[in-house]
Structure formats: C-alpha cells, structure tokens
Amino acid sequence: MAKRIRLAQRVVAESDRLAKDLAGRFNRAGVFVANLMGSPGAGKTALLEETARRLKGELRLAAIEGDLATDRDARRIQSAGIPCRQINTGGGCHLSARQILDAIAEFDLAALDCLFIENVGNLVCPAEFDLGEHCRVVVSSTPEGDDKPIKYPVAFHHADCVVLNKIDLLAATDFSLEAYRRFVRGLRPRIPILELSCRTGEGMEAWLDWVRTQRRTAAVRV
C-alpha cells in the first residue's frame, strides 16, 4: 500500500546545522568572522594581505583561504604576518561549513579578534552556503565592469558590505561609479560600499574602520 510522507525539509539542512554550530562557537569565543566572496582576481587576497599588514599590531587576526588548488594564497597571507590555513576544495566551487569546522580546529578562537574566511573565487555558489559568519563581504573590482551587481544579484543581496577594489584603474576602464552604486543600492539600499585600492592604499582606512566596528559588535556578544 503506497503512502505519501510529507517532509518539507530544506536540502541544505545538515549544512545549516553545522553553520549554526560554527556561529555559536564564534560568538562564545568573541571572534568577529567575515566571509569574503567575489570573482577570481577581484582582489580578495590582496585585501586580506593589506588588512593584515595594517591591523596586525592592533587586532589579533587569522584567515582561512579557500581555493580549488595550491597553497599560494595562504602563503601570501602568512607573509603578511598573520596565521592562515589553506583549504583546497579540489573541484568544489564554494567552502562548506564542514570544511570550516575542520580548519578552525587549528586555531584558538578565543585568542583571536577577527577571522577572515576567503571563499573560493566565484560570485554564484558561495552565496548559498552559510559558514556561521557574522558578515558577508562581496569584493568586486573595476575591471570586472559596473553591472556585476545586477548580473549576480544573489551574492549582492545577501552581502553586509560591498568592497569595490582597484579604483586606481578607473581611468583605464569604462566603469561608471554612479551606475555601480545605483545597481548595488537597488539590491541593498543601505549597504556600505567601500571604494578602495589595495595597491595604492586609497580608501583602505574606511575598510579598516568597518572591520574595527564589526569586531567591537562581535566582542559584545560574548
């Protein structure tokens, strides 16, 4: 006799459970966690390198790097002076909560102020997977074009902060700052848009201030 079983279960339920567990650990340790996502080459690693150089004397930082292959990015971050753990996803297009659980085993979370998770370079899939982070940061850059927000709306719609990198290259591109801001605000009216250049350092201070503010909020949760 056939019967129907109603379930209505979210398919990522297991992943959601792990993410919730991660969020609890981060909050108990009082560490601010940011999940950085963006296209390959947008400058996610460059942003973390520059952040490490400028903030390591002030805050206790660490990073987790997600890439399909190699530990090149983790070595770059370590050279900038902070601990970093590399995750190689093989063919995986995003980092999963399970991978983060394994990676944080090597960190003493309570001895950290900020943990940056650099997701796999991809503007599509990482937006779908919660890693227990406090904030999601989308890193984009001027050579990618100003219409990325409306072409990849999910990533931008779920972001808490948008960084526009490589503003030193504005003159060499057809990028319109006005159009970009309009597209981002169309998806997220009140989101901070931080325009900067990791190469020249222009605009970096606003980003560092954003990190400082977020980390103070995270520390209060303990």
Binding site: A2, R4, I5, A8, V11
Partner: peptide
Amino acid sequence: RELRLESLEIE
C-alpha cells in the same frame, strides 16, 4: 530561495 525535499511516496 528554497531547495526542499517536499514529500516521498513509499510502500
């Protein structure tokens, strides 16, 4: 936004 396993038909 959802990807959901809605129901199963079983014997």
